[in-house]
Amino acid sequence: MEESSEDGVNSTRPTDEVLSILYNLQLSEAGLQNLLGKNSDFVECLTQFMQRGTYESRAYGALLLKSLMEVADPMQLIGLKPQLFIEAIQILQDQISYQASKAILQLLINVCPWGRNRVKAVEAGGVPILIDLLLNSTEKRACEMILTVLEMMCGCAEGRAKLLGHAAGLAVVSKKILRVSQVASERAVRILLAVSKFCATPSVLQEMLQLGVVSKLCLVLQVDCSSKIKERATEVLKLHARAWKNSPCIPTNLLSSYPA
């Protein structure tokens, strides 16, 4: 996205230069707070700049937004506009750069606990994008961050509905258990616990059986992993023992570890 000058030579858009300069200034925490405090609509303007920017300037914008959200006060976090989440999710979808994606994931981790931000992130299309990223992600830290954000989004009914509405939602979350790290496993099991508590329709329970989710939870009880993960896996299995315990979908060697 470049503009042509009068002599026909391509020139960088002024807004792109602004984002690059702002990021490269590497403002201190006090400087970032001052930027937010003196310009109440700065985040909104920054979001608008990013929507029209080049890939490079959008990446700078993502890094700058992450830094700003780390110093924002609670009222500023609660008052974030839906458009910020739309642009953040779009950056994840466009896969501009690893650093930009990581910045957006960290931004979402920082802001989703506040107010209705997790709902805003879900409404911006966050859940299916995160699931698609998780399907293609093999890097440990990226998987951990994606699952952390996904768990936050599944803390609301809208997020859980989107997870279940994605053909690969339950399967990819279950697949990451015991394959990435203790952190990733804990986040994934917590997502399954939320689904089991609040979305346990007969069809969902049957899907969890057929996809091997229940078998994976039984496996968790047999292997060496943290007590927290085992406790949550046990809770899920106990919640629906009547529907699952005697199912032929669970291999015999795993069925033996089904909690009483």
Rank of each mutant, 00 (worst) to 15 (best):
Glu3Leu: 13
Ser11Glu: 15
Thr12Asp: 07
Ile21Leu: 13
Ile21Phe: 13
Tyr23Ile: 02
Gln26Tyr: 08
Leu35His: 07
Gly37Ile: 02
Thr47Trp: 05
Phe49Thr: 00
Met50Thr: 08
Arg52Asn: 14
Tyr55Thr: 13
Ser57Tyr: 09
Arg58Gln: 15
Gly61Ala: 11
Met69Glu: 01
Met69Asp: 00
Glu70Asn: 11
Gly79Gln: 07
Lys81Val: 05
Gln83Pro: 01
Ile86Tyr: 03
Ile86Leu: 09
Asp94Lys: 10
Ile96Lys: 02
Ala100His: 04
Ser101Thr: 10
Leu108Asp: 11
Asn110Pro: 00
Arg116Pro: 00
Arg116His: 12
Val119Lys: 14
Val122Trp: 01
Pro128Thr: 06
Ile129Gln: 10
Asp132Gly: 01
Asp132Val: 02
Glu139Leu: 03
Lys140Thr: 08
Arg141Tyr: 01
Arg141Asn: 03
Cys143Val: 04
Leu147Trp: 01
Glu151Leu: 10
Cys156Asn: 06
Ala157Thr: 12
Arg160Leu: 10
Leu163Ser: 05
Leu164Met: 10
Gly165Phe: 10
His166Gln: 06
Val172Glu: 15
Ser181Ala: 05
Ala184Ile: 04
Leu192Pro: 08
Pro202Ala: 12
Val204Ile: 15
Leu205Thr: 09
Leu209Arg: 14
Val213Ala: 06
Val213Asp: 04
Ser215Phe: 09
Leu217Asn: 10
Leu219Gln: 15
Leu221Thr: 08
Gln222Glu: 12
Ile229Ala: 14
Glu235Val: 03
Lys238Met: 14
Asn253Thr: 10
Leu254His: 08
Tyr258Val: 06
Pro259Ser: 09
